[in-house]
C-alpha cells in the first residue's frame, strides 16, 4: 500500500538531508512503526508520504498514487493525525468534525461516534479552544478517522495523554487494523510500538537503520537483562544490565561484590533497550 524508494529530503534543498536514502514498503493492513529519537526525521518522512512536503528525491507511492504528482482524490483514502494538534479553536469539537467531513468525497463517519470513541462524547459542544492539550490531541486523532481512511498516518498519537486514554487510543488503532487499515505510526512510546506494530523501523539522523518485527528483534537481540537495585553511599540506585555483554557482566559482578543488593530480577529486553543497543542512541 505504501512503497518508498531512496527517499531523500532536505529542508534547505542542499546536501543537508533531514531524511537520507530511506526505503521501505508497508503491506495492506499492516501497522508499521517508525521509531527514532527527536529530530531523527520521522515527521519529515510522514510529511512527504502525506503530500505535505514536496517529494524532492526518490519514489513514493501511497494507495497506488504517485506522490510526485498529488491528486486531491488521493486524500479520500488517507487519514492523518498530527503531532501538534491543529483544529479550529473557535469552533466546537462537533463543528470541527462536521466541517472537516464535508471536505471529502467519500462516505464519512458520524462526529458523535468518533468523539465517543476517544472519550469526548460529552464535550462535543465545547469550543476546541477551551480544550486541554490532551483533549485537542484526541480531537485531532478522531478527525483523522472521519473519512474511513484505508491508509492512516499517525504522528505521536499518544503523546501527552494519560495512560488510560493512551490505552483507549491503542485499542482504537487495534480495531482499525482489523478493518485492513494500513497504518504508519510514529511514536516514542515503545510499549505501544511493541504491542501494536507488525514491523518497526529504527531511524536515526535521517537514516533508516533496520526494519523488523518486534518479535524477531527480541529473538535476535533476545538476551536477558537484569534489573538490579542496590544501595551506594546510602542512596538507592537502579541499573539495567545485559547478561551477555562483557562490560555489563563485569559491572554486575562488581555490584554484587561491593554493594548491598535490594532487588534483582531478569527480564526480556524491551524494544527500547534493543533500540539503544542497535543504534547506540537513546530514544529521546
Amino acid at each position: 500500500m505504501i512503497t518508498v524508494k531512496n527517499l531523500h529530503h532536505s529542508y534547505s534543498r542542499d546536501e543537508k538531508y533531514a531524511v537520507k536514502d530511506v526505503s521501505f514498503e508497508i503491506e495492506k493492513g499492516e501497522i508499521f512503526g517508525f521509531l527514532g529519537p527527536s529530530g531523527a526525521g520521522k515527521s519529515t518522512t510522514q510529511g512527504v508520504l502525506s503530500g505535505l512536503l514536496q517529494l524532492q528525491k526518490g519514489e513514493v507511492t501511497v494507495a497506488g498514487y504517485n506522490v510526485k504528482h498529488i491528486k486531491n482524490k488521493m486524500f479520500n483514502e488517507i487519514g492523518m493525525s498530527f503531532e501538534i494538534s491543529n483544529v479550529y479553536n473557535k469552533m466546537t469539537a462537533k463543528e470541527n468534525l462536521n466541517f472537516y467531513r464535508k471536505l471529502f468525497d467519500v462516505e464519512t463517519r458520524e462526529p458523535e461516534d468518533l468523539l465517543e470513541m476517544v472519550g469526548l462524547g460529552d464535550k462535543g459542544n465545547i469550543k476546541a479552544g477551551d480544550f486541554s492539550k490532551g483533549m485537542k490531541h484526541r480531537l485531532t486523532f478522531a478527525r483523522s478517522m472521519i473519512n474511513n481512511p484505508s491508509i492512516w498516518f499517525l504522528d505521536e498519537p499518544t503523546t501527552g495523554l494519560d495512560p488510560a486514554i493512551a490505552a483507549t487510543i491503542k485499542d482504537i488503532i487495534w480495531k482499525e487494523k482489523k478493518k485492513e487499515v494500513t497504518t504508519f505510526l510514529t511514536t516514542h512510546n515503545m510499549h505501544i510500538a511493541d504491542e501494536l506494530c507488525d514491523r518497526v523501523g529504527f531511524i536515526v539522523d535521517g537514516e533508516l537503520i533496520l526494519i523488523d518485527s518486534p518479535k524477531n528483534l527480541k529473538l535476535q537481540y533476545g538476551e536477558k537483562f537484569v534489573d538490579i537495585e542496590f544501595v551506594k553511599d546510602g542512596e538507592p540506585i537502579k541499573e539495567s544490565l545485559s547478561t551477555i555483554d562483557d562490560k555489563d557482566k563485569a559491572r554486575i559482578k562488581n555490584i554484587i561484590d561491593n554493594y548491598e543488593i535490594q532487588t534483582m530480577h531478569t527480564k526480556e529486553a524491551t524494544l527500547e533497550e534493543i533500540f539503544i543497543k542497535v543504534t547506540g542512541r537513546g530514544l529521546v
Partner: peptide, 13 residues
C-alpha cells in the same frame, strides 16, 4: 494553529 496542514490532507484543494 496548523489549520492549513489539516486542510491540505483533505480531498479539497
Amino acid at each position: 494553529q496548523g489549520i492549513i496542514k489539516a486542510y491540505a490532507v483533505t480531498a479539497s484543494a
